[in-house]
Protein backbone atom coordinates (compact mmCIF):
# COMPACT_ATOMS: atom_id res chain seq x y z
CA UNK A 1 0.00 0.00 0.00
CA UNK A 2 1.41 3.34 1.00
CA UNK A 3 5.05 2.35 0.91
CA UNK A 4 6.50 5.82 0.43
CA UNK A 5 4.17 7.40 2.95
CA UNK A 6 5.59 5.15 5.65
CA UNK A 7 9.15 6.21 4.86
CA UNK A 8 9.92 6.94 8.51
CA UNK A 9 9.44 3.27 9.35
CA UNK A 10 11.63 2.25 6.44
CA UNK A 11 14.39 4.41 7.81
CA UNK A 12 13.94 2.79 11.21
CA UNK A 13 14.02 -0.75 9.85
CA UNK A 14 17.01 -0.16 7.58
CA UNK A 15 19.04 1.56 10.31
CA UNK A 16 18.15 -1.13 12.78
CA UNK A 17 19.31 -3.91 10.50
CA UNK A 18 22.50 -2.07 9.56
CA UNK A 19 23.32 -1.58 13.22
CA UNK A 20 22.50 -5.16 14.11
CA UNK A 21 24.56 -6.47 11.21
CA UNK A 22 27.59 -4.44 12.28
CA UNK A 23 27.32 -5.76 15.83
CA UNK A 24 27.25 -9.34 14.61
CA UNK A 25 29.64 -9.21 11.66
CA UNK A 26 32.50 -7.02 12.83
CA UNK A 27 35.40 -8.24 14.89
CA UNK A 28 36.66 -4.86 15.98
CA UNK A 29 35.24 -3.97 19.38
CA UNK A 30 34.92 -0.26 18.57
CA UNK A 31 33.05 -0.99 15.35
CA UNK A 32 30.69 -3.20 17.28
CA UNK A 33 29.91 -0.30 19.57
CA UNK A 34 29.29 1.91 16.54
CA UNK A 35 26.83 -0.68 15.30
CA UNK A 36 25.18 -0.82 18.69
CA UNK A 37 24.75 2.96 18.66
CA UNK A 38 23.18 2.89 15.21
CA UNK A 39 20.87 0.14 16.40
CA UNK A 40 19.78 2.22 19.38
CA UNK A 41 19.40 5.34 17.27
CA UNK A 42 16.94 3.60 14.99
CA UNK A 43 14.67 3.13 18.01
CA UNK A 44 14.96 6.83 18.79
CA UNK A 45 13.62 7.51 15.30
CA UNK A 46 10.77 5.10 15.87
CA UNK A 47 9.68 6.96 19.00
CA UNK A 48 10.22 10.45 17.62
CA UNK A 49 8.29 9.82 14.43
CA UNK A 50 5.38 8.19 16.24
CA UNK A 51 4.77 11.41 18.19
CA UNK A 52 4.35 13.46 15.03
CA UNK A 53 0.79 14.28 14.09
CA UNK A 54 0.31 15.23 10.41
CA UNK A 55 -0.27 18.95 10.01
CA UNK A 56 0.31 19.62 13.70
CA UNK A 57 2.76 21.97 15.30
CA UNK A 58 5.11 21.85 18.24
CA UNK A 59 3.25 21.34 21.52
CA UNK A 60 3.41 24.92 22.77
CA UNK A 61 -0.01 26.30 23.61
CA UNK A 62 -1.01 29.17 21.33
CA UNK A 63 -4.38 30.56 20.21
CA UNK A 64 -3.50 30.27 16.53
CA UNK A 65 -3.05 26.52 16.57
CA UNK A 66 -5.45 23.74 17.33
CA UNK A 67 -3.42 20.65 16.51
CA UNK A 68 -0.31 19.68 18.44
CA UNK A 69 2.15 16.82 18.15
CA UNK A 70 2.39 14.39 21.04
CA UNK A 71 5.35 15.44 23.18
CA UNK A 72 5.43 12.34 25.37
CA UNK A 73 7.41 10.01 23.06
CA UNK A 74 9.96 12.78 22.59
CA UNK A 75 10.41 13.11 26.32
CA UNK A 76 10.67 9.34 26.71
CA UNK A 77 13.34 9.17 24.09
CA UNK A 78 15.36 11.86 25.80
CA UNK A 79 15.71 9.38 28.63
CA UNK A 80 16.61 6.61 26.24
CA UNK A 81 19.24 8.85 24.59
CA UNK A 82 20.85 9.41 27.97
CA UNK A 83 20.84 5.67 28.58
CA UNK A 84 22.39 5.17 25.14
CA UNK A 85 25.16 7.64 25.89
CA UNK A 86 25.89 5.94 29.19
CA UNK A 87 26.02 2.56 27.48
CA UNK A 88 28.37 3.77 24.76
CA UNK A 89 30.62 5.51 27.28
CA UNK A 90 30.72 2.40 29.42
CA UNK A 91 31.47 0.26 26.36
CA UNK A 92 34.29 2.54 25.22
CA UNK A 93 35.78 2.58 28.70
CA UNK A 94 35.75 -1.21 28.67
CA UNK A 95 37.44 -1.27 25.27
CA UNK A 96 40.21 0.99 26.59
CA UNK A 97 40.83 -1.38 29.46
CA UNK A 98 40.62 -4.41 27.17
CA UNK A 99 43.26 -2.81 24.97
CA UNK A 100 45.48 -2.21 27.98
CA UNK A 101 45.07 -5.80 29.15
CA UNK A 102 45.27 -7.67 25.85
CA UNK A 103 47.07 -5.25 23.53
CA UNK A 104 44.36 -5.72 20.91
CA UNK A 105 40.77 -4.84 20.20
CA UNK A 106 40.18 -7.57 17.63
CA UNK A 107 37.83 -10.22 18.92
CA UNK A 108 39.76 -13.12 17.39
CA UNK A 109 43.06 -12.02 18.97
CA UNK A 110 41.42 -11.74 22.34
CA UNK A 111 39.81 -15.13 21.93
CA UNK A 112 43.15 -16.75 21.14
CA UNK A 113 44.65 -15.26 24.29
CA UNK A 114 41.67 -16.34 26.38
CA UNK A 115 41.90 -19.86 25.00
CA UNK A 116 45.58 -19.98 25.91
CA UNK A 117 44.68 -18.95 29.44
CA UNK A 118 42.13 -21.70 29.58
CA UNK A 119 44.58 -24.27 28.19
CA UNK A 120 46.98 -23.35 30.96
CA UNK A 121 44.25 -23.84 33.53
CA UNK A 122 43.57 -27.21 31.98
CA UNK A 123 47.19 -28.29 32.03
CA UNK A 124 47.48 -27.16 35.58
CA UNK A 125 44.46 -29.23 36.56
CA UNK A 126 45.20 -32.45 34.67
CA UNK A 127 48.65 -32.00 33.22
CA UNK A 128 51.01 -33.67 35.63
CA UNK A 129 50.40 -37.35 35.46
CA UNK A 130 51.02 -38.42 39.01
CA UNK A 131 49.21 -35.56 40.49
CA UNK A 132 45.71 -36.83 40.08
CA UNK A 133 43.96 -40.10 40.11
CA UNK A 134 40.84 -38.72 38.49
CA UNK A 135 41.75 -38.34 34.85
CA UNK A 136 45.12 -39.93 34.48
CA UNK A 137 44.88 -40.57 30.77
CA UNK A 138 47.46 -39.03 28.48
CA UNK A 139 46.17 -35.52 28.46
CA UNK A 140 49.37 -33.70 29.14
CA UNK A 141 50.20 -32.63 25.62
Amino acid sequence: MNIIGLYNYWIVVVLMLIGFFIVIAHENLIKKLVGLSIFQTSVFFLYISMGKVAGATAPILDENYQLYSNPLPHVLILTAIVVGIATTAMGLALVVRIYEAYGSIEESDIQVQDNNDRLEDYLEAYGRKNDTHLFNQDKDE
Binding site: L36, G91, L94
Partner: peptide, 11 residues
Protein backbone atom coordinates in the same frame (compact mmCIF):
# COMPACT_ATOMS: atom_id res chain seq x y z
CA UNK B 1 38.81 -11.97 31.22
CA UNK B 2 36.24 -10.11 33.29
CA UNK B 3 36.64 -7.19 30.87
CA UNK B 4 35.73 -9.18 27.79
CA UNK B 5 32.94 -10.91 29.68
CA UNK B 6 31.55 -7.55 30.71
CA UNK B 7 31.85 -6.24 27.15
CA UNK B 8 30.00 -9.24 25.81
CA UNK B 9 27.30 -8.78 28.43
CA UNK B 10 27.08 -5.09 27.56
CA UNK B 11 26.49 -5.79 23.88
Amino acid sequence: RALTASYQYLV
